[in-house]
């Protein structure tokens, strides 16, 4: 089935916003194990493309498949469990960091899993944070720390594809390094895992991606 190794495959993708095409004829495949950066001027619709790939927004034309199956045939909660989207602005629910990390396990899609405190502890240690971090009020954290919590929250569900929208926009250099560590650890755990980034930091793009896909604003 995965003869060409494509996890996500978008063909002739087009999306209209308020009656005009934001992008059109976008073809792009994310193959197993790849690290791809999505580039394009601001306003070209990078975020919308990520949201479409995550199944949160609809395509106006074209087709999208995950592992060769059209996205329309997937049960969306299952699809989104495999394709993880972490938006530029992290969303924290009321409560502690631990409450936020436990949140996904209240959902039916993850009833077969349970929250693994020791795994999370080990992850936090890699980020240079101890147990006290779990008890902190998530809403009071800095934007950068919230971004890390959002990523840990998502990665514990072991997705196959990770879509990151400007993940280090609110991080300092140490934070950005911690984030890259997290993503590398996750990718290292299984050969097929693939990541798609958008980032305005060109040196980060060079470091974290094997190839760059350009999204041009349609005329």
């Amino acid at each position: 089935m995965l003869s060409d190794g494509a996890l996500l495959d978008l063909r002739d993708g087009g999306r209209r916003v308020e009656g005009r095409w934001l992008w059109r004829g976008v073809a792009f495949a994310l193959r197993a194990g790849e690290r791809v950066a999505l580039a394009g001027p601001s306003g070209s619709g990078k975020t919308l493309l990520l949201r479409v790939l995550a199944g949160l927004d609809a395509l106006d034309e074209g087709s999208l498949t995950l592992r060769g199956t059209p996205s329309g045939l997937w049960h969306m909660p299952t699809y989104r469990s495999r394709v993880a989207y972490v938006p530029q602005r992290p969303v924290m629910v009321e409560g502690s960091v631990e409450d936020n990390l436990r949140l996904p396990f209240t959902l039916r899609a993850h009833t077969t899993r349970s929250w693994d405190r020791s795994l999370v502890r080990a992850t936090l240690e890699r980020l240079g944070r101890d147990d006290r971090f779990l008890a902190q009020d998530a809403v009071e954290l800095s934007g950068g720390e919230q971004q890390l919590v959002a990523l840990v929250r998502r990665l514990q569900l072991e997705p196959t594809v990770l879509l990151l929208d400007e993940p280090s926009a609110s991080l300092d250099d140490d934070g950005a390094a911690a984030l890259e560590t997290l993503v590398d650890d996750w990718r290292g755990a299984a050969a097929e895992r693939a990541v798609l980034w958008t980032s305005h930091r060109s040196e980060q793009v060079d470091r974290v991606s094997d190839r760059v896909v350009r999204l041009e604003a349609s005329a």
Binding site: L56, P77, Y85, V91, R108, L157
Partner: peptide, 10 residues
Amino acid sequence: VELLLSLGAT
């Protein structure tokens, strides 16, 4: 809402 959806919520 979209956080929950993207985490796999129905």
